[in-house]
Design a binder for these strands. Structure first.
Lengths: 230, 230
DNA sequence: ACCTGAACACCGTTCAAGT
DNA sequence: ACCTGAACACCGTTCAAGT
C-alpha cells in the first residue's frame, strides 16, 4: 500500500525486493499461479531473470513474501471495539476473503508458522479468546482449533477457486457434483445423496462462518463451567 | 490390496493402471513428491515414459488415483459398533494418520470433492451425525464443519511433515519457533509469546483431536435444545 | 491395442561476463 | 554492488515409429 522512497531510485525504476514482490503479486492475481515464472517476471520488470536472484533467494522465498504482503494487508485494521467473538469472526472472514481474492496464497500459508502472516492471525485470535474468558488450561486447544480451522478451510476454498475461476463455472460445477451424488449407490451413500440438494445452493462463506460459530459454541462449553454467573 | 488377475498378463508384468499407481505410491512414499517423475516411474516399471500415458491421463490423474488408493484403504474397516461420536473420532484419526504417513496426499485431497476418497469421509461423518440425533436444519452445517476441519488440519500437518521428515528435526524445529516467538515484541505479540512454551511439547495428533471434541461439543449445543430429555 | 524413446516446449537456477 | 542473458539440468507431454 505505502510507497517507499528509494534512495538509489532512478526514473522510479530501480530493481528492489519490494518492486519484485509487487510485480509477482500482479502476475499471480491476473494470470494465476502457473504464469509466475522468472522469465515472465523478468520481462515485466524489463531485466534479466538472473537479476531477480540478487534480491530474492528463490521461488519459494518470492511466494512467501507475496503471501505476507497480502495477509498483513488484510489484517491491517482490526476493530478494537467489537465484542471478542465478533472480532474472531471478523478475523476469520478477513483471512477467508483474502485467500478467496488471491487463491495462490493457499498453498503458501502453511509453509512457515513463524512467518508474519501466521503470527498476526494467531495473535488476533488468541487475544480475543482471553478476552472471552477462556480459562488457561483450555486456551491452547481452543486457539489451535480455531486457527487450524480458519487456515484449513480457507485454503481448501482457495483450491476450489483455483479450479473454477468464474462464478458461472462454480454454479455448474456444484450442480454437477450434486447430480453425481444423487446417482450414487443408495445403500453405500445414503447420507451423501441426502445432502446433495443442499450442496447445490450453499454459500462457501456462510458455511465457513457456521463452522466458526460451532467451534465458538464448543469453546463456550469449555468456558462456562469455571465461570460464576454474574 | 487385492491383486487383480490380468488376462493378458505375461510373467506377471503386464503394464496396467493398477501397477502404475502402485509404483507411483512406492516412489512417493520412499522418495517424496519431487521424486515422482514420469521418467523415474518408467524406469521402475522398465518401460518408456510414453507408455504410462496410455493408462493414465496425466500427472494429476496419477496423483488422484494414488490418493484414492490410500484413503479408501485407510477407511476400509469402520467399526460399526461404537458410539457415534467415537466413530467420528475414529474416522478423523484414520484420515489424519493416513495423511501423516503419506504426506503427498495433502495437496491432492482437495482437488475433486467427488472423488471416492472425499465421498467415503463425507458419508462416514454424515451418518454418525444423524445417529447422534442432530436435527435436519443443523445437519449440513455440522457435517461441513467437521469434514472441513478434518481435511484442513490433516493437510496442514502433511505440509509440515513434508518440510520435516524426521522426528528429531521436528522437535528442533518446534523449539526454534518457540524461541523465536519468545523474542517477539511483547506489545504486539502478547498472546503468541505466552503460548510459545506450550508449542514446544504439543502433540499434533492430540491437538487435532481436541479440535474435533470442541466441534462435537458445539454440535451437542445445536442438538440438545430440540431434544426432550428421555 | 499397446509400447518405445527421441523430441518439443517449457521450467528454476547458475554463472561468467559486463557496468 | 548490481545487472545481463546464455547455458545447464531438469520437467511433463507428444508422437512417429515400431510390435
Amino acid at each position: 500500500m505505502a510507497r517507499r522512497t528509494q534512495r538509489s531510485e532512478r526514473r522510479g525504476h530501480a530493481l528492489t525486493r519490494a518492486r519484485i514482490v509487487q510485480a509477482a503479486v500482479e502476475i499471480l492475481d491476473s494470470d494465476g499461479e502457473d504464469a509466475l515464472t522468472f522469465r515472465a517476471l523478468a520481462a515485466r520488470l524489463a531485466t534479466g531473470s538472473g537479476a531477480i536472484y540478487w534480491h530474492v533467494a528463490d521461488k519459494s522465498d518470492l511466494l512467501a513474501a507475496a503471501t505476507n504482503e497480502i495477509i498483513v494487508g488484510a489484517l491491517a485494521e482490526p476493530d478494537h471495539r467489537s465484542e471478542p467473538s465478533q472480532a474472531i469472526r471478523a478475523i476469520a472472514i478477513a483471512v477467508f476473503d483474502a485467500i478467496d481474492a488471491h487463491p495462490w496464497i493457499g498453498a503458501q500459508l502453511f509453509r512457515d508458522p513463524a512467518q508474519p502472516a501466521s503470527l498476526r492471525i494467531s495473535e488476533g485470535i488468541g487475544r480475543r479468546l482471553q478476552a472471552l474468558g477462556v480459562p488457561e488450561p483450555a486456551l491452547f486447544d481452543c486457539w489451535s482449533a480455531l486457527v487450524n480451522y480458519i487456515l484449513g478451510v480457507a485454503v481448501q476454498n482457495a483450491a476450489n477457486a483455483r479450479l473454477l475461476p468464474r462464478e458461472t463455472e462454480r454454479t455448474a460445477f456444484l450442480a454437477g457434483i450434486a447430480d453425481r451424488w444423487t446417482q450414487l449407490d443408495p445403500a453405500k451413500y445414503t447420507f451423501v445423496r441426502q445432502v446433495a440438494g443442499r450442496l447445490r445452493d450453499h454459500d462457501d462463506r456462510e458455511q465457513f462462518l457456521a463452522g466458526i460459530d460451532l467451534i465458538l459454541a464448543g469453546i463456550a462449553t469449555a468456558t462456562r463451567p469455571s465461570e460464576a454467573p454474574h
